[in-house]
């Protein structure tokens, strides 16, 4: 239903009140969920996106679409309800705002006026080429940002900048890497493997993308996480790679390799090489999942786990249903940025 900005609250209430009441309807008021979508989205695709999120994360949605074709900010309101039990439904209110560039300055005032008070405000940056001005002004309102750092123009550096404005960021690329982190964590939970940690000499990270060129956000995030866990910092770049120093393993060389593939960007494999050359840990993905090959003291062990591939939306749904720790993300992100800044022209091995 299209409505004037001043009537948004009244019309939303009418929408909720007009729902048939043969069962119990609960209006969700657990949080505000602001979604900034790209201009290429239309009402249908926005509603599809919200349809996917609302069953796993019911809240008040405010979707914002930049729109060069309109002259003023326009609003539509609706509600979507999903069944919780046989006679109980939960309803999420939706406000969709189409915003012309001349309305960018005024937009925060519209959003602020329609947030549910006293609950957190979350911001999802969804899609490419989102206007910087809107990202900045909306992140000032938000407590939490959900984004795919690959889709941010400045990659990890933009993510770090946004992190400075909110309590935390849920980077969907970080969520995607959770299987990799989990497998590394499990391998080194064995005492035999853990005793090799001080002997780590090099880490080789292979990523693939459509161009076969840097940068690789997943690769940087993984390198950042490994560096943080090993308490290392990148100190220099040489012909052998990024030199990282830390108290745990001394100097460790991290190298990146970029391969061309049909995928937009993803981690392909990761090798941890130990001093002496007789031991290594190799994680590699293929169509059947994530496989690890661990060689220690002449023995070889192999592990496998399924690897969920998915769109950012799938990752987001997974986050809401299962949850995922982002506790180590800020430190990993900071180190990823430090590496990216050491040599912007790094081409990999």
């Amino acid at each position: 239903m299209k409505v004037a900005l001043k009537d948004i609250d009244i019309k939303l209430r009418e929408v909720i009140e007009s729902i048939e009441t043969d069962t119990l309807y609960t209006r969700s008021a657990s949080s505000n969920f602001i979604v900034l979508v790209s201009e290429s989205s239309d009402s249908k695709s926005i509603n599809r996106l919200l349809d996917a999120i609302s069953p796993v994360h019911p809240c008040r949605f405010i979707a914002i679409r930049p729109d060069k074709k309109v002259s003023d900010i326009s609003a539509e309101v609706s509600a979507s309800c999903h069944k919780l039990s046989r006679n109980q439904h939960v309803c999420s209110e939706r406000i969709i705002l189409n915003v012309p560039p001349v309305g960018f300055d005024a937009l925060p005032s519209v959003v602020n006026a329609h947030l549910l008070p006293g609950v957190s405000s979350e911001l999802l940056l969804f899609g490419e080429d989102l206007p910087d001005q809107l990202i900045n002004s909306l992140s000032d309102i938000a407590d939490i940002i959900y984004c795919d750092s690959v889709e941010l123009q400045g990659g990890v550096r933009d993510a770090l900048r946004l992190l400075g404005k909110v309590k935390h960021i849920v980077d969907l690329r970080w969520i995607e890497l959770s299987y990799w982190r989990q497998q590394i964590k499990e391998i080194f939970s064995h005492k035999a493997a853990a005793s090799f940690i001080p002997l780590i000499k090099a880490i080789h990270i292979v990523t693939e993308n459509r161009e076969g060129k840097p940068p690789s956000t997943p690769g940087l995030l993984m390198a950042g996480w490994l560096s943080d866990r090993l308490k290392m910092s990148p100190v220099a770049i040489s012909s052998s790679g990024f030199e990282c120093d830390g108290p745990t393993a001394g100097t460790v060389i991290i190298t990146f390799e970029y391969r061309k593939s049909k995928f937009r960007t993803r981690l392909k494999n990761l090798e941890i090489i130990f001093d002496g050359g007789n031991a290594h840990v190799l994680l590699e993905r293929d169509s059947s999942g994530l496989h690890s090959e661990v060689k220690l003291l002449g023995n070889e062990y192999n592990f496998s786990s399924p690897l969920e591939e998915g769109t950012p939306l799938k990752m987001l749904e997974k986050y809401f249903v299962i949850g995922e720790s982002v506790k180590n993300y800020p430190a990993a992100l900071k180190l990823a940025c430090e590496m990216a800044e050491l040599d912007e022209n790094y081409r990999g091995v």
Binding site: L5, K6, I73, G103, D105, A106, P108, S109, V110, A113
Partner: peptide, 8 residues
């Protein structure tokens, strides 16, 4: 000056 609910 600024905006209140979209109005200057």
């Amino acid at each position: 000056k600024g905006y209140i609910n979209g109005e200057p």
